[in-house]
């Protein structure tokens, strides 16, 4: 089983690599950019009002259509007022989409407002073939003061004459500080911990509305099903293919087939195969999924 699964991954890798070679031919500068369909690009901070001297997270989230293995050219905003402590990147995949997440661990060195410019991404829009620069939202961070300021000493004018006053003042200040800390400690013990404020939802930058082609969507669906041939994925793929032919949630397969446009007639065997895979017995599921894969192969060039 493990061997067949790794074989599937290798095959998937080869398919993606071959697809990449076709999609990203070398030569011109513009064509060296990745071809992507950007669905979401945002930047957020957690917590939104960090404390001076304490590390907090800046997260850049990019959702692109299709199975993308690598995204290298996200340009971060200038972080001159923040000290960078760490940078972590990951790509995860959901049905028909890849999610790139970059988490920067930073620390503010001063209080007040810090304005961060949007993060940017240069890519070729896979649907139009045009080079585009995508931007995330800008971000304003308000850094709060952290620790109590040091206690100021009494002026030196009367220093020599009344040193005892100075010592007494110091002792009084220490006693006051100790009493304040005790009071704060007691207060916090009685009150439940306040939850951290939720981060404000990121402001999405309007992006051009572009459509993925039918075959691209079918290829995505086929890849997802091949990578994870389970009933749950069959269900998702069935929904995706049904939406491709404009089926509504209230239509059965026969409704959909009855009004299938001529251009989509070739999808009828695939729709039937997915229906079988979605509702057949567990024993029959592997065979039903193979039928779906054959049906995908029939419609994909």
């Amino acid at each position: 089983m493990a061997r067949s699964r790794s074989l599937v991954r290798v095959k998937l890798g080869i398919a993606v690599a071959a697809l990449s070679c076709l999609l990203f031919p070398q030569g011109s500068e513009a064509q060296s950019l990745p071809r992507l369909v950007v669905e979401r690009f945002s930047m957020s901070a957690r917590p939104v009002s960090p404390t001076i001297g304490r590390a907090f997270a800046l997260t850049i989230l990019l959702r692109v259509r299709g199975n993308v293995r690598r995204i290298d050219n996200v340009t971060l905003p200038i972080l001159s007022q923040l000290a960078l402590r760490g940078d972590e990147r990951s790509i995860s995949h959901t049905l028909g989409a890849s999610i790139y997440r970059e988490t920067l661990t930073v620390r503010a060195e001063r209080t007040g407002k810090i304005e961060l410019a949007p993060a940017t991404l240069d890519a070729i829009d896979a649907r139009t073939g045009q080079a585009e620069q995508y931007s995330s939202n800008a971000l304003t961070i308000v850094v709060r003061g952290g620790s109590v300021q040091p206690f100021a000493t009494v002026g030196s004018a009367v220093g020599r004459l009344v040193p005892i006053v100075e010592h007494l003042a110091m002792i009084a200040a220490l006693l006051f500080a100790a009493a304040s800390l005790t009071a704060i400690a007691l207060l916090y013990r009685r009150r439940p911990q306040r939850p951290e404020p939720l981060p404000t939802p990121p402001i999405l930058v309007a992006e051009p509305v572009v459509e993925q082609t039918r075959n691209e969507r079918l290829r995505d669906a086929a890849l997802v099903l091949r990578a994870e041939p389970t009933r749950a994925v069959v269900g998702s793929v069935r929904v995706a293919v049904r939406s491709l032919v404009g089926a509504t949630a209230k239509e059965t397969l026969s409704d959909v087939l009855a009004r299938l446009p001529d251009a989509d007639r070739d999808l009828a065997p695939l729709l039937r195969a997915l229906e079988r895979a979605a509702f057949t017995t567990d024993d029959d599921l592997p065979s039903a999924i193979r039928t779906c894969e054959d049906a995908f192969a029939e419609v994909l060039p």
């Binding site: 059965t252 397969l253 026969s254 229906e275 079988r276 509702f279 057949t280 017995t281 029959d284």
Partner: peptide, 12 residues
Amino acid sequence: GRDYVEPDDIRS
């Protein structure tokens, strides 16, 4: 000729 029910069977 099927050994499983589809939504179409119920709707029909």
